[in-house]
Design a protein around this nucleic acid. Sequence first.
DNA 1: AAGGTTTTTAGAACCATTCTAAAAAAGAAA
DNA 2: TTTCTTTTTTAGAATGGTTCTAAAAACCTT
Lengths: 140, 140
Amino acid sequence: MVRNMVLTTSEIDKLLDNAKLRHTKQRAQLAKMLFKAENRHFTAEQLHKEARTAGHTISLATIYNTLHQFRSAGLLRQVIVEPGKVYFDTNTEPHHHFYIEDDGELLDVERNEVKISTLPEIPKNCNIREMDVIIRLRKK
Amino acid sequence: MVRNMVLTTSEIDKLLDNAKLRHTKQRAQLAKMLFKAENRHFTAEQLHKEARTAGHTISLATIYNTLHQFRSAGLLRQVIVEPGKVYFDTNTEPHHHFYIEDDGELLDVERNEVKISTLPEIPKNCNIREMDVIIRLRKK
DNA sequence: AAGGTTTTTAGAACCATTCTAAAAAAGAAA
DNA sequence: TTTCTTTTTTAGAATGGTTCTAAAAACCTT
């Protein structure tokens, strides 16, 4: 999908169709907020606040439900960098992260910016599902 | 510190001295449980259960207090791999992890088993504090 | 429009962790 | 040792992000 600006209504229809989700006002609103040109990182609470500020009426429970549905559909991924809170990431390509600990900010690191030349032997009976590199930063 | 077996009382004294912590029964018990030959990964709840099973009387609050004190003293580090729970790791050397998602098990990966040949440019005004590689596994 | 299904919602529940404030233990001084 | 002060431990309450519940609203089909 091309994402160089805000999605049109028909693009959102397509997105929800692909995700096999019914079209509802809340899902369309969230999709419109999330899937723009720029990838973003956010928590459920942040998104909730943002939606209310934008004048949408949506409950926190629906935010959580929808984020998980989007995630199952492969439209979002979770990033775990801090105890007690989950970040969501609209970038679902394999990639890595800077995490600025001072202010809890996540930044994407493209996959090819980290070259891993040696990998450990994988325990038998296991497959790699995903590999996360988190570079934790402190401000000078 | 040499850790090829259970620590002696005087080694524990030294450990607490170095950490600038007073010697108390609970801290000594936990130190004895934790700092053995093998490094280990555990949560506060797991350690609490283990201590009670070993016949020690120690509250969960003290487990948390002590783990944080040990961490500040550089004797433990935290590992964040799952939402809503924190693992502690007795291995404080720079290293990485396998995380077996099926059963929530963490395994150490030595630093030299992952060779990173290219790093992204660090955002200006920032320093690297730490770099975590988490290889998420699924059982076949 | 009616009927059956899915979605949304407010608020309760959950659970790992932190906080509180009072009791217990430790250390210092006499 | 006894007393005094400080630190530590503790049970239980509080917290905060997330999930659950069950009832109302929205949705879809006929």
